[in-house]
């Protein structure tokens, strides 16, 4: 479900009303905070440290795992799964780029041309997610089926010959190919891009467009010099909200891909659930992935210049 996506400004601390600014020490906020924060500490922060420790253990399910400082787990995690890291990286970047390219026009249209249908159109963006995302992803198996109109058309137009030569599709099928994986990912994460984009575009005063027009800007220049800079918070929020789930996603790779489209998530699941000795290496991979994602996201935020996002 994507109904409410944290837009950057909501995570900012809010100035409390003046009545709350009492100088004396007050324990009430801590009583309110404690249970929830404790839950997050025990079941979110502590597991991260547990899995760092697990990543240097050895053993198997029957004899149990022991902390042996087996750093070789990391060399295995880094060397044996290079293809999967590469796939996860490529697919999630492509997905983010496509989502932005498709999401921006939609958000722009709803924000400036939506008129009284604004909320109805935004509802249409969210409504599909009321159905389980797995069922919706599997529906793409029907849409992209070999005898279906989409593949027929692409075949007749000889598009699939080109894409298969480039390695995006396989033979004259679309299913079970990298193209289908990226298509599924874009479909699944598009609302995550549209919602923050819409929030920031909606705040822009449409009179700024008229001002740009009055100052002899072409519509494109108005967009590039006025609208785009003002919508940057939405662009950054939207790309982050798309990229982060996309890099960990393995649903689309599994359901719409083939054995050659393996991503990191699949390997982690395999090692944890279908390999009696794999859990330390699986932990090592998830630590690598967590650190990698964090470094990427942090450098992106720093580069984009909105550190108040966190």
């Amino acid at each position: 479900m994507t109904a409410v996506v944290p837009s950057p400004e909501l995570t900012e601390p809010v100035e409390p009303p003046p009545s709350a600014r009492k100088p004396k020490r007050n324990w009430t906020p801590w009583v309110l905070l404690a249970p929830g924060l404790l839950w997050l500490v025990v079941f979110f922060l502590v597991p991260i440290f547990t899995s760092v420790s697990a990543s240097v253990q050895t053993g198997d399910y029957d004899d149990g795992f022991k902390l042996t400082w087996h750093w070789a787990n990391y060399s295995q995690a880094l060397t044996d799964y290079g293809v999967q890291y590469l796939h996860s990286g490529i697919y999630s970047v492509l997905c983010t780029v496509f989502c932005l390219a498709l999401g921006y026009p939609v958000a722009y249209f709803i924000a400036f041309k939506g008129g009284k249908y604004k909320s109805l159109l935004m509802a249409l963006v969210i409504v599909p997610s009321f159905t389980s995302f797995l069922i919706r992803t599997i529906a793409w198996k029907t849409i992209l089926a070999d005898n279906g109109p989409v593949v027929q058309f692409l075949n007749d137009a000889h598009v699939l010959k080109l894409t298969s030569a480039l390695g995006w599709t396989v033979g004259n099928h679309v299913l079970a190919s990298p193209a289908a994986v990226v298509c599924g990912m874009v479909y699944n994460f598009l609302p995550f891009t549209i919602l923050p984009l819409y929030t920031s575009l909606e705040k822009i005063d449409p009179r700024l467009h008229e001002a740009g027009h009055d100052l002899y800007c072409s519509p494109f220049t108005t967009w590039r010099r006025v609208t785009l800079p003002l919508s940057m918070p939405g662009v950054i929020g939207g790309t982050l909200l798309t990229f982060i789930p996309a890099i960990g996603d393995y649903i689309n790779a599994q359901l719409l891909g083939n054995p050659n489209t393996g991503v990191v998530g699949q390997k982690i699941e395999d090692l944890f659930l279908r390999n009696t000795q794999g859990y330390p290496v699986g932990s090592a991979i998830s630590v690598v992935m967590m650190v990698g994602t964090l470094v990427l996201v942090m450098s992106y935020i720093r580069k984009a210049g909105t550190e108040d996002l966190i």
């Binding site: 597991p47 547990t50 982060i244 994602t293 966190i310």
Partner: peptide, 25 residues
Amino acid sequence: NALLFLPMAAPEVVMGATLAALFFN
């Protein structure tokens, strides 16, 4: 704020795997 933001920013597979590690241990 950071503690509240992180679970929304962590890839799901990482949350699942780390939590599984905690429960296994």
